[in-house]
Every structure is written in C-alpha cells, then in structure tokens.
Design a protein around this nucleic acid. Structure first.
Lengths: 122, 122
DNA sequence: TAAACATATGAGCATTTATTCATATATTGA
DNA sequence: TCAATATATGAATAAATGCTCATATGTTTA
C-alpha cells in the first residue's frame, strides 16, 4: 500500500475542474476499489486460473487438482485458500477428502470475458 | 514463472483417470492461460482500477488523471503503460498532451462483473 | 533555437507474492 | 489407540511489482 500525496498539476486547471469534480463523485469508495483490485489479483495468477478451469469441469478434491496440474498438494492448498478467501470457490468435506467447487457464476463470466479480450486480436 | 515437477498422487487413481483426461483436453493452451492471468493482473491493482474508472467518464490526458487521483505524473504514466500493454486503453496525441481512453467494452463488462461479485454478500 | 510544458522511462528500493519444505490437524480403518 | 491418508499452514526464499527520483523525449511557443 502506498500513500498518495498532493501533487503538481497541469496547466488547464479551470477547463477540467468540472470533470475532476465528476470523477470524484463517481469513483467508488476506497474500500470497494481495494476489494475489486483484490478480487482481480486472485484471477491474476496462472495457477489459480488453471484451478478454476479444473473446477469448471467438476467438483474435485485437492489431490486431484494437484495431479491434474502436476503440482504439489501444498502449493495447491495455498492457492485454494486464496481462491476461497475471494469467495470464488467453496469446499465440502467428505471423509478424508475435501471437495472444491465454484462458488457462483461470476467466475465463469469474468473468465469468459477475459478470454474474449485476449483472443480479440488474433 | 515456476516449473511444475511431477508429484505424488492420491489414492483413487483409477476412479478419476477419466476426469483428469478430460481436464487435460479442456484446459486452454499454456500461453493462453498465461495471457489470461496477465490480463487479470492488470486489473489487480487499485491504482489501475481507479484510472479505468476515470476513463469510464471521459477521454483524459495524463496530468488530469494524476490530478484526479492525487498521484504523481510518473506513477500514472507507468501504470498507463501497463494498461496499454494489456490493450485495455488506447492513446492519442493532441499537441503536448496525450489523451487516453478505454480500448473496448470488455473493460466495463469485466469490472461490472467484479463489482457484482464483491457486492454480492452485503 | 531556446525555454516551457507534457509525457515516458530507467534505476533503485520496499513490499508483496508463489512456491517449497517441514510439520500440524483431521479423518478413517485396523 | 495407532498407522495411514488427505489437507492445511507457518517460515523461508526467490521473483515480481509499484512507487519515487532523476532524466530523457517530444511538442509548442516566444
């Protein structure tokens, strides 16, 4: 986190005062902006993206994800924790295993939109 | 970037072989997953989110963004570079100023979905 | 052409982050 | 209750990231 200090301005102050006021009015609250950035941060790692793609197919346990992605149980477990904190996935215990699945439909929508964007040119 | 090594498996191998095969077939290519994560990484910073919200309102120059967000021109410029690399924004020179605007509608859709998600509970 | 202005960029630094390793917790079955 | 299995977690480390500062590039105007 960084602290924003007051800063030099550019020349056309009078001209854009209106706009700046408007921006100030429409900008979401600080903690909403923060939460939004945190949410996208969660999508911003290819391991977590891969985990989500696995969960698109089925509800699976940790060791299956680890196997599917050729990664250690520990690494996957750490990432599942982050995905769960962002409420992108949920879990359910069944005996010794814990099964993970997608929390809601936003996950798919967001990833689908992202996919569209990166595929747009080419 | 990290290298994924082969890993211990869990017990029910035979049971989930089918699933693992399916996941393997449906997982996007490595570089698509990478690009997707990179895209979301771009959204995953509150300064860049703020910049995008400013651009939702109007096409503006660098110094206006800096002023609106109370940050230095340099900090904003560095972030604009990242947003542009991800093709979320585009720029246009007009005299000494460079005006930035949103590149396409995906930006709004993605942020709107993210907003819905974080506002879902509470 | 020189000075002023707007923006971009490279180096440096502090912070965050993803993985590994070791180990803790929880559940089942003998 | 003890061993085996599945998962979670804390500490450590290497890599990535966002900002600042100094300065470079590009444009306009005197």
């Amino acid at each position: 986190m960084h602290i924003h200090e007051d800063i030099e301005l550019c020349d056309h102050k009078e001209i854009h005062t209106e706009l700046l006021k408007h921006v100030n009015d429409t900008l979401p609250e600080e903690n909403q902006l923060y939460d939004l950035a945190e949410l996208f941060k969660t999508f911003g790692d290819s391991t977590r993206i891969r985990i989500l793609f696995v969960l698109f197919e089925a509800e699976v346990c940790v060791c299956d994800i680890a196997e599917a992605l050729h990664m250690t149980q520990s690494a996957i477990s750490h990432q599942l924790r982050i995905l769960k904190q962002s409420k992108l996935i949920k879990s359910r215990r069944e005996g010794k295993s814990i099964f993970y699945s997608l929390a809601d439909e936003h996950v798919k929508t967001i990833i689908a939109q992202g996919m569209e964007h990166i595929l747009e040119d080419r």
